[in-house]
């Protein structure tokens, strides 16, 4: 945390990005506390359907950004959608991190055949872009679990699909760091004191190889959020009956043709601001924690 604040000192771009992220998180997690869920009966009022934004003819002060086809206040609906998107993004990154991290640790520490097997698996997976893989995993989950799935099930499937699609990068990074660390003297010292392999891996090596991976995770958070939005937009991820940035844009896209642009373009804007902010922060952290670049700037 301290080094994170240090990384931001005197950097207006990354500071602004962090501020935007905090604002959006605040918006996403406080608005739902005192408003009715726009995707329940209480949250929509069909009489207000297609209310335009405040500054256009027929705008209402209660709905400054307008309402969608079901009369949902977009300002509220987007908070719910943003909350889903942020949670899906964060949890899927954590899943990818844990899965890739564990495989990378094992691969780098054990070596030999296990290492070869895991890394060849990674090679095969790298022949496909993560977005495509997430779609395929989603389809497999649908085939296994059946089609009549609930909203919660659909969200869980999306999270796991994105998590699995991104494990390779973490595994490769951790593996290469572990291969360097395992020959260090402190590992030999720990072994002499009689610690088990698991304890050495988790308690001694892991803390030393985490930093670069956490930076990759920040960058991947942006990609994971885009992936969720893309999947939901294409009708594969989160169903249209549940708010996420992607499903809101998908819903609004149907009315783009008839001129109700605000239903899809506001969520697009929020998505872009969130992703750009996360990317700016991620890029900055990568440069800051990369000693090769650090010396030059």
């Amino acid at each position: 945390m301290k080094s994170f604040l240090e990384a931001l000192r005197g950097q207006p771009g990354p500071i602004a990005a962090t501020a935007f992220i905090l604002l959006l998180v605040l918006y996403a997690f406080t608005v739902p506390l005192f408003t009715a869920d726009p995707f329940s009966m209480a949250g929509m009022s069909i009489l207000d359907a297609f209310t335009p934004p405040l500054w256009m003819d027929g705008g209402q002060t209660a709905m400054p950004l307008g309402a969608d086809d079901q009369g949902r206040n977009l300002l509220t609906a987007m908070a719910y959608g943003l909350r889903t998107s942020i949670m899906v993004g964060v949890i899927s990154v954590v899943i990818g991190l844990v899965l890739g991290g564990a495989l990378g640790l094992i691969s780098g520490f054990v070596g030999g055949r296990t290492d070869a097997l895991i890394m060849r698996l990674a090679d095969v997976q790298l022949a496909y872009p993560a977005l495509l893989l997430a779609m395929v995993i989603d389809a497999i989950a649908t085939a296994v679990l059946g089609r009549g799935r609930s909203n919660e099930m659909a969200i869980a499937i999306v999270i796991v699909s994105i998590g699995i699609a991104f494990w390779v990068q973490y595994a490769r990074t951790i593996r290469s760091s572990v291969m360097i660390e395992r020959n260090q003297e402190y590992v030999a010292a720990a072994r002499v004191t009689g610690r088990s392999n698991t304890a050495i891996l988790v308690k001694h090596i892991l803390p030393n190889v985490m930093a670069p991976v956490l930076v990759i995770a920040t960058i991947n958070l942006g990609i994971a959020i885009i992936t969720e939005a893309t999947l939901s937009f294409l009708g594969i991820g989160i169903p249209a009956t549940y708010p996420s940035l992607g499903s809101l844009i998908r819903n609004g896209n149907a009315y783009l043709q008839s001129g109700e642009w605000w239903i899809s373009l506001w969520p697009c804007l929020v998505l872009v601001v969130l992703v750009v902010a996360v990317n700016v922060l991620g890029d900055h952290l990568r440069d800051h924690f990369n000693p090769k670049i650090r010396g030059r700037s």
Binding site: A229, T230, F233, N253, W261, L265, C268, L271, V272
Partner: peptide, 14 residues
């Protein structure tokens, strides 16, 4: 680089 692919499409259509 930063705009998601489908957002580019939606904006162009709009």
């Amino acid at each position: 680089i930063t705009l998601p692919n489908f957002v580019v499409g939606v904006l162009l259509i709009a």
